[in-house]
């Protein structure tokens, strides 16, 4: 009898241990799967966000208004039989388009590439606006353009804002000054885009009056893109937009962007 009780006891003990282990295992496994799923979902969401933002960036960069207005300006020279200018601008425009497509697929390019891209863009805008627009680009002599990198599709939309919202609505000619300066901190530099147009406050007002339901504003797209770059831990980017009318005797918009490239060790 004692033996039987003992057997039952052992049996129950083993049963409890087994059930305990199995349920622990199941709980643990479930939790692990849950965590894995969460992580996967998080990754997917992050990926999706990045893709959407890249798409938006591409859209904001290839502004159809810009494309068609440029072609329209080229049509003008064709009509006037100015063969050389027409050819020159057509090929310049084509080169710019090529760069748009190339760079939209890349994450970073050198400052040298970026600057030459921006100059091409400004040249095409000048074809349309002629004397109404002028620009200058200053690069600090201590900045190594060939070995300093910049994320693609950031500056051009900002520059386009200066042209379309700043200078466009201004009566008379406007100027855009871009400068690139090295900062004391490691791998850091600052880009300024300063125009003497109507200023971002006034431009916002005009836009509000002209269109009731505008789509995502380009500056929102830029902000979203910067957020994602900051999240990636590869860049630390700060930006600031100032309506210059806060200073006496000035007008226009100033955009300051500081880039810090955090290289992986």
């Amino acid at each position: 009898m004692n033996n039987y009780d003992y057997f039952i006891g052992v049996f129950i003990f083993v049963l409890v241990i087994t059930i305990g282990t199995i349920s622990l295992f199941i709980t643990f496994n479930n939790r692990k799967n849950q965590l894995l799923n969460e992580k996967l979902e998080e990754q997917l969401a992050a990926q999706k966000r990045q893709h959407t933002s890249e798409l938006n960036a591409l859209r904001s960069q290839l502004n159809p208004h810009f494309v068609h207005n440029s072609l329209n300006a080229i049509q003008y020279y064709i009509q006037r039989n100015e063969v050389e200018i027409s050819e020159d601008y057509l090929t310049k425009f084509s080169k710019l388009m090529r760069l748009f497509f190339d760079y939209s697929r890349k994450k970073i390019i050198t400052l040298e590439e970026e600057i030459s891209f921006l100059v091409k863009y400004l040249q095409i805008e000048k074809l349309r606006f002629e004397e109404k627009i002028s620009y200058s680009i200053e690069v600090g002599s201590d900045l190594d353009k060939e070995n300093t990198f910049i994320p693609t599709m950031i500056l051009q939309p900002m520059l386009e804002n200066a042209v379309n919202h700043g200078i466009f609505h201004k009566l008379g000619a406007g100027h855009i000054l871009m400068s690139f300066d090295l900062l004391p901190e490691k791998n850091s530099y600052k880009v300024s885009i300063i125009d003497d147009g109507i200023g971002c406050e006034k431009s916002r007002e005009i836009q509000k009056n002209q269109k009731a339901n505008t789509k995502a504003h380009s500056s929102e797209v830029i902000k979203e893109r910067l957020d994602i770059l900051n999240e990636s831990q590869e860049w630390s980017i700060d930006y600031q937009i100032i309506d210059r009318s806060i200073h006496r005797g000035e007008s226009g918009t100033a955009v300051y962007i500081t880039f810090k490239h955090i290289q992986e060790e």
């Binding site: 329209n72 300006a73 049509q75 003008y76 009509q79 006037r80 349309r128």
Partner: peptide, 8 residues
């Protein structure tokens, strides 16, 4: 507003 567009 664009003289070119008018000319075209």
């Amino acid at each position: 507003d664009e003289p070119k567009a008018i000319a075209i």
